[in-house]
Amino acid sequence: MKKAVIVRDYTIPANDFTIAGEASSNVRKILTQLGVSPNVVKRASIAMYEAEINAVIHGKGGNAHVEIDENKIYIVISDEGPGIADLELAMQEGYSTAPDSIREMGFGAGMGLSNMKKHADILDIDTEVNRGTTVHITVYFNSDKKI
């Protein structure tokens, strides 16, 4: 029998923070229904939310693709934004290229990527300047990573 995999695809709108949290909130509900432990649910939904928000702020929106099997959740957030020129620098806490207008709304504190790293078990980032960024997040259900 084929392994059961739950797949979800969402469109992330550009410049709309109100809709941005919906996909991660929806994923939170799915994981809860599957009986995933609250700690893991929280980590997956926070990591996904941060990636979604980045796509809204920097990437002019994009797409979220989610796959859930019995061991893990795998999230891919892709955008066709400006890309990240210096990934190592961007990973540092507090580093942000978000404009003031975004910061005034309480976003763009430079914690997004480091927060994703903190909550994910595996974080892979493919980025190319002027081409866009794709973030791959994996969270294992049996992982005992604490936050």
């Binding site: 059961a4 739950i6 809860t32 599957l34 009986g35 019995e70």
Partner: peptide
């Protein structure tokens, strides 16, 4: 809200 105690069954 859990669909099943067994994760495989919950996924199905």
């Amino acid at each position: 809200m859990k669909l099943d105690d067994d994760m495989m069954k919950a996924l199905e």
